[in-house]
């Protein structure tokens, strides 16, 4: 579950304690999905991207524990990104090795800062939106269809009438559900954005 109660700063303080499981879980939930997304955007497969994100986190933890992370020196995201870029480059290299075996020349390299930073922004937004909708799905009852209605409208690009017909509702019901969910989402998204902003 996404923990909205703590800012990343409080979280980071919690990370000094290895046994502070909650802090670790929150940190993990907050940044690993973004890093996986960034790695995928940089061309890695899902599995490789997951590996790269895990390794990045491991390195981060190590350096963090050794007090190598200086809050005044740089933002959390650039620190994570620096590690991630190296890891992605490592995966490129590994892939290059595989390709060479197959007789294909593959040129690897380290992805540039701008590309990774842009990818971060996109992925961060994407992660936040997905977290928001997950949060809503999680707290709503099985019988509550409004999130589902919202998804039908959003994902499948369907008209309100169309959705209403399928579910046996009126178009008014669908509009109301849409407006309710949008409003809730807006709140949750803002809340999550704040949590991330506190550090970045």
């Amino acid at each position: 579950m996404l923990d909205l109660t703590r800012t990343t700063t409080a979280l980071l303080n919690g990370l000094h304690d290895v046994d502070n499981a909650e802090a670790w879980a929150s940190f993990y939930g907050r940044y690993v999905p973004i890093m996986i997304g960034v790695a995928r955007r940089l061309g890695l497969s899902e599995a490789d991207a997951q590996d790269a994100a895990q390794e990045t986190l491991a390195t981060f933890v190590k350096e963090y524990r050794e007090n190598k992370y200086d809050r005044d020196r740089g933002r959390l995201r650039s620190w994570l990104l620096t590690i991630l870029r190296t890891r992605v480059a490592g995966q490129y290299r590994a892939r290059a090795v595989r390709k060479e075996q197959q007789g294909v020349t593959f040129v690897g390299g380290v992805p540039d800062e701008k590309t990774t930073s842009d990818a971060w922004d996109v992925e961060r937004r994407r992660t936040i939106l997905l977290q928001a909708i997950d949060e809503l799905r999680k707290v709503s009852k099985t019988s509550d269809q409004s999130v589902h209605i919202f998804e039908m409208l959003a994902r499948d690009n369907r008209s309100a009438q169309d959705v209403a017909d399928e579910l046996g509702l009126t178009a008014q019901d669908v509009y109301r559900a849409k407006s309710r969910v949008t409003q809730r989402l807006r709140e949750v998204v803002t809340k999550i954005e704040h949590v991330y902003d506190a550090e970045e």
Binding site: L129, L130, I133, L153, A154, R155, R186, T190
Partner: peptide, 26 residues
């Protein structure tokens, strides 16, 4: 980063979610 979501209309937000959800499904 700004609170992007504050400046978006309901439909913008819907469209944005639509894209993210489609990507996820894809």
């Amino acid at each position: 980063m700004d609170d992007v979501s504050l400046h978006l209309t309901d439909d913008d937000l819907l469209a944005e979610f639509g894209q993210v959800l489609r990507e996820q499904t894809g």
